[in-house]
Design a protein around this nucleic acid. Sequence first.
DNA 1: CGAATTCTTGAATTGCCTCAAACGCGGTGG
DNA 2: CCACCGCGTTTGAGGCAATTCAAGAATTCG
Lengths: 252, 252
Amino acid sequence: MTNPRRSTEAKLKVACSSCNLRQLCLPVGLSPADLDKLDAILNLRQRVQAGQHVYRAGEPFRSLYAIRSGVFKLYRLSADGKEQVLGFHLPGELFGLGAISTGVYAVNAMALEDSHVCEVPFARLEELAQQVPALQRQIYRFLSAEILQDWNAMTVLGSMQAEERLAAFLLDLSERLQRRGFSPSALHLSMSREEIGNYLGMKLETVSRTFSKLQKDGLITVERRLLEIRDMARLKKLAGCAEAVGRESVPA
Amino acid sequence: MTNPRRSTEAKLKVACSSCNLRQLCLPVGLSPADLDKLDAILNLRQRVQAGQHVYRAGEPFRSLYAIRSGVFKLYRLSADGKEQVLGFHLPGELFGLGAISTGVYAVNAMALEDSHVCEVPFARLEELAQQVPALQRQIYRFLSAEILQDWNAMTVLGSMQAEERLAAFLLDLSERLQRRGFSPSALHLSMSREEIGNYLGMKLETVSRTFSKLQKDGLITVERRLLEIRDMARLKKLAGCAEAVGRESVPA
DNA sequence: CGAATTCTTGAATTGCCTCAAACGCGGTGG
DNA sequence: CCACCGCGTTTGAGGCAATTCAAGAATTCG
C-alpha cells in the first residue's frame, strides 16, 4: 500500500482529512490511507452561487455531490410546469443518489445560498468502494438514510395538519443543524415561504399564517428568514414526538 | 388490526436461476456462476401468510427480503398509535433497505396476501457484492429506485387532489404489475380502502367516493377489491402525465 | 344463521385554499 | 436624500374539497 499525502495540484484542494465535516460525510470510518484514496478521486470544493444549479433533471448522471457549505434544494417540475420540492440539503449531506438507478438525474439541484460542493464521480467512487469495504458501507448508509428521510417526509405529508407539519419541519432542520455544530434553536431559513410550503404540501399563505400562530403561542419567534425556537418541548409535542414535554402522560 | 395467524416456515429450495422473477430481482445481470453464489447465501422461498409480519419496527436488521409472490405493506405506528403506510411491494421487489443505515428496522412489513419471500442475509450479501461488481451495482439500483419511488409518493401527497392521487396510485400499480407479466388493466387490490387512503393521505370514505366518481366517469370499474381500468389515457391525464390523451394540447 | 368486517353513501362541518390588499425591505435612479 | 419599484411576506374574507359523523349495504366467516 502506498501512503501518499494529498496531491498539491492545481485545484483549490482541501482534503477530506482536514474537512470539518469529515465526521458526517463520506469519510466516516475510513483509515487515513483510504481517506487519501478518496481524496484522489474527488473534485474538491467547487463553488456554486445562490440560484445556480449543480445539475438538472434529464442530464446524464455522472457524479454525486457532497455539500461543504451552503444549502441546496432538490425539486422537479411536473408536466404542467408546477414545481415540487423534494428536499433540502445541508453541509455534510450527499445528494444525487436518486440518479444511480436510471443513470439520469431525476430532479434539479439548486443552491439556495452561495455554497461549496465536492463532486464525487460515481464511476470512480464505485471502483474505490469495491476495494474499500468501509467506504462501501458508507455509501449504503447514505442511500438508506435518504430513504428514511423520505419516509419521514411522507409521514408528514400523509398524516399531519399544517401546524404539525411546520413543527416537524423545523425540528428536522434543527436536529440536522445541531449535528453540524450550529445552534439547534436559532435557524436561518435559506428557503422562501413558498418553498417551505411546497415541500410541506401547503400554500405559502398557510405557512406564513402558521408561523404567526406558532409565534403567538410562544413556540417560536420569526422575523423574515430568522427563526428562533423558544419552546422546543412543546414544538416536539406538536410534531408528535411522544417524549417531548415530559410531564404529560403518553398515550398507549 | 394485525392479524397474525399460525406461522409456517417451509423452506423449499427454488434457485434464482429457475425463478421467473430473475429479470426483475437481484439476479439481473449476473453470470450463471455468480447466480449460484447468490443462491448459496439466500434462504429461499419462505412462506408468509396474509396478516403475518416479516419483521417489525425496532427489531435488529439482519436481512433484506425479495418477494417471490404476494403483496406486502410497509408501515409504521406513530407515537400515538396511528398507522402510516409507506408503501406496497410486489413480486420481484426487495424490501428492508431502509434499515441498512441504522441497523434496526424502521417500519413493519406485513403480508397482505399469502406470500413467499426469499430472505437475503445482508452481511453475506455485502460480502458477496464486494466480490461481484454486477451484484454491487444491482444493490445500488434497488436502493436508488426506492428513493425515486418515494419521491413520486411525495409528489402525489404534496401536490395532488384526491382524484389525481388515486389515479396516480392506480397507474403506478398498473405499471408495476405489467412489468411482472400481469394485466395492466385488471387489478386485484390486496389492500383495503383504509390502507390505500392512509398511503395516499386521505380518509377511506374519500377513497370510496373517489372510486365511485371515477367509475361514474367511465375511467374504471370497481367492485370491492376487483378493479378494471377502462380508459387508461384519461386516467393518465388525470394523474398529470402530459402525453396521455394525445389530442389535448399540453399547457405551457 | 348471526356477528364482524369492509365498503358505500349522505349530510354537516372545517381546515386550508383562493382571492385580494397592504406592508416592509432592498435596490435603483432622479 | 427621497420617490419609486419589485419581491417576499403578512393578514383578512369567503369558498370549497375533504373530513367527520352517521347510517346502511354487501361480503366473509364462525
